[in-house]
Amino acid sequence: MQRDRMDWIWFGGLWVLFTAIGEVLALGLNLLPGQYAEEAKVVDDAYVLLIALSVPVFALVAAVLLTAMLRFRTRVGPDGPTEDGPHIAYNKRVVRGWFIGSISLVLLVVINPGLVGLSEIRGESSADMVVEVTSQRWLWTFGFENGAETTTELVLPVDKRVRFDITSLDVVHSFWVPAFRTKIDAVPGRVTELFVTPNREAEPEEDVANLRVQCAEVCGLGHARMGVPIRIVPEAEFDAWVANLAEGE
């Protein structure tokens, strides 16, 4: 019995230790790129919450594995194993505890960040302006309300809620902006919608990998390079840019 208690102490100690180290690492290290939209916060908060919740789960399994490695190994002679472990085929308390733990964890995750996050990212459907996005292999075309069009860069005003109306002329593409933490497919014959509120001025050079519209659904030869840089500017500057763009045509 004494030995049995020591096993549990080892396991409990390792679990607490791994959880503590894991949480410090997970919450201390900044694993995420810069946020450039209101909606990105919802996604990042969900991401961080899920990491925080998965650390103890991970630590539990790691603690059992390490306890087993350290305490349950047996030397087996040349004739093969002769001694068996105890005949523990079931333990009502452990199984019940496991079910209660896993079911409550799942329900928690389904509610928050699950349904809460879902309502936040898909909730409000009003917008200050609309950008029409047309994709084709391997080109993005952005159309603005004054009729201006561009394919070389996407410029957006800061703090305005933008609705993107997205479609495709050929195969399925996917409109992804890592800095906004969102994407939706561009599907031939459909118009898909995405709402984004850029909240920080930005030049694409700040974060080339994230401040871009990138195709995220494989579409053939030019798929990897089907990307356009994004610039976020004050509203007045945007108005001037889009007016200038319309005149230039």
Binding site: F58, G114, T182, K183
Partner: peptide
């Protein structure tokens, strides 16, 4: 376990819209 836990990030709509593909 690693595969299963990271699967939750992809089952969650809010994180999936960033992580998908």
């Amino acid at each position: 376990l690693m595969g299963g836990v990271t699967g939750i990030f992809l089952a969650d709509v809010a994180t999936d819209v960033q992580l998908h593909d």
